[in-house]
């Protein structure tokens, strides 16, 4: 899963989806995660990165991360990655 290509994410946490015209706001940690996903980081990397930077345990973050991802999907901000042919 990755973030739709054309999504504009500003430093302030304001997100604009040019294909639907919808705008969104996110908190600083949400912004950080979005940017990591956009860079193409895998879930494990993201978890490592966040748990290293914040006072949070693995389980808590994992729950919150799934919830965040499902919200992103619900808001139609994501696309499924195409299967790579090995």
């Amino acid at each position: 899963m990755s973030i739709k290509k054309n999504i504009a994410i500003s430093e302030s946490g304001f997100i604009f989806d040019p294909s639907t015209g919808n705008s969104f706001t996110t908190n600083p940690i949400g912004l950080e995660i979005l940017q990591l996903i956009k860079e193409g980081r895998e879930q494990n990397e993201i978890k490592k990165h966040i748990t290293a930077g914040y006072h949070v345990d693995d389980n808590t973050f994992e729950k919150d991360f799934y919830d965040f991802i499902s919200t992103l999907q619900q808001l139609k901000l994501t696309v499924e990655n195409e299967k790579k042919n090995d």
């Binding site: 500003s10 302030s12 946490g13 304001f14 604009f16 705008s23 706001t25």
Partner: peptide, 11 residues
């Protein structure tokens, strides 16, 4: 401009 809407929405 969208950035004006962003400013009033965020700040």
């Amino acid at each position: 401009n969208l950035n004006e809407f962003e400013k009033i929405s965020i700040n």
